[in-house]
Amino acid sequence: MIKVVRGNPTPEELAAALAVVQARAAATASAAPGAPRVPEEWSDPARIARARSRQPGPRAWTRTFWPA
């Protein structure tokens, strides 16, 4: 059940909000329950290592933590 707590939405605004909620629920329901979920791109730790590392040099210790 969806309840409007604040404001006075127009019927069009309420229909748009319900369409988004229904689409999200349908997308979640259509996913296979046993299938592994693919991690989101932004949270993938491997994205940090995609850039080629710099070669070690005299000041290599300054670049040990932050990728270039």
Rank of each mutant, 00 (worst) to 15 (best):
A51E: 11
V21E: 11
G7P: 00
E12M: 14
R37F: 02
G34R: 06
T62F: 04
A49F: 06
S53G: 08
V38D: 06
A27L: 12
F65P: 00
R24L: 12
R24T: 15
V21P: 00
W42A: 10
P56K: 09
R6M: 02
A68P: 13
A27W: 01
T64D: 06
R47I: 12
R54S: 12
R59L: 11
D44R: 12
Q22L: 11
A60N: 12
S30I: 02
M1C: 13
R59N: 14
I2K: 01
W42R: 10
I2C: 05
A19I: 01
A49H: 08
E13M: 12
A60C: 02
A16L: 09
A29N: 10
E12I: 15
V4Q: 01
P9A: 04
W66K: 15
A46K: 11
R24N: 07
S30A: 15
E13D: 11
A25R: 03
R50A: 08
A26N: 13
L14G: 01
R50I: 03
P45L: 03
M1K: 04
P33D: 08
A35C: 02
A46L: 03
S53N: 07
W42K: 10
T64F: 05
A29F: 08
D44Q: 08
I2A: 09
M1Q: 12
W42E: 07
T28C: 11
L18P: 00
A17S: 09
G7R: 02
G7H: 09
A17F: 04
V38T: 12
P9I: 11
P45E: 01
A26F: 01
R50F: 02
S53C: 00
R37A: 14
R6C: 03
I48M: 06
A68C: 07
P45D: 00
N8Q: 15
R54G: 11
E41S: 08
P9E: 02
A32E: 09
A51F: 08
I48K: 14
P45H: 02
R63H: 07
V38I: 13
R59H: 06
I2V: 11
A32R: 07
Q22D: 14
A51R: 14
A16H: 15
M1H: 06
R52T: 10
P36V: 05
K3Q: 09
A60K: 13
K3I: 14
E41H: 05
A68G: 14
T10L: 03
P11M: 06
F65N: 07
V21N: 02
P11N: 08
A49Y: 05
P56E: 03
A16V: 07
A32P: 05
A15D: 08
Q55A: 15
I48C: 06
R6S: 14
P36E: 05
R50Y: 04
Q22E: 15
A31C: 04
G57R: 08
A49P: 00
M1Y: 11
R24Q: 11
T10S: 14
Q55W: 09
S30N: 07
L18Q: 14
E40G: 14
V4T: 03
T64V: 09
P36L: 08
N8M: 10
A51V: 04
A46Q: 05
A32L: 09
V20D: 05
I2Y: 08
A15V: 01
S43I: 07
A16R: 15
R52A: 12
F65S: 10
R37D: 03
R59A: 10
P58T: 04
A15P: 00
L14R: 14
G57I: 05
